[in-house]
């Protein structure tokens, strides 16, 4: 692993990335950094959405299902942030070895997760709306 084509004097961490290949164009590394940051921001957005949902549910006295959805949103956000590190590492390795970039495997998972969250919240909204309509005189 480490040592193949590693540049002398380069002691940056992680060694699994900087110990292989040669230095790529700094612009490519910067683009990789921005992509990782975009994943972090996606995670932050999900976490903030979950926090907003659970605080709203506390104040409006909504059922526990909403809190559960909020917890799932927080955990999915945490996974997005972790994926940022994983994908940065994979992409930087590929850049250093002049290999094609790996496919963004987290993207379909994220899309499915966001669609699921949206469907859950929409289903809850419809059920609550129907319940409120039925209780009208």
């Amino acid at each position: 692993m480490a040592g193949e084509d590693a540049e002398p004097g380069d002691n940056r961490r992680p060694r699994s990335v900087y110990g292989v290949g040669t230095e790529p164009d700094a612009r490519f590394s910067l683009a990789n950094e921005r992509t990782a940051l975009a994943w972090v921001r996606t995670g932050v957005g999900l976490v903030a959405g979950g926090v907003a949902l659970t605080s709203f549910s506390t104040f409006a006295d909504l059922p526990g299902l909403v809190d559960l959805v909020a917890a799932v949103a927080c955990l999915v956000g945490a996974s997005c942030a972790t994926y940022a590190l994983v994908s940065w590492r994979r992409n930087e390795r590929a850049l250093r070895r002049r290999e094609p970039l790996p496919a963004p495997g987290g993207l379909p998972v994220l899309v499915v997760g966001v669609v699921l969250l949206a469907v859950l919240i929409a289903a809850y909204a419809v059920a609550a709306g129907l319940g409120a309509a039925a209780s009208l005189p």
Binding site: G50, A70, A71
Partner: peptide, 12 residues
């Protein structure tokens, strides 16, 4: 995320 999820779960 952990603080938010723990709070949400404790509410749930």
């Amino acid at each position: 995320a952990v603080v938010g999820a723990a709070w949400a779960l404790s509410q749930a």
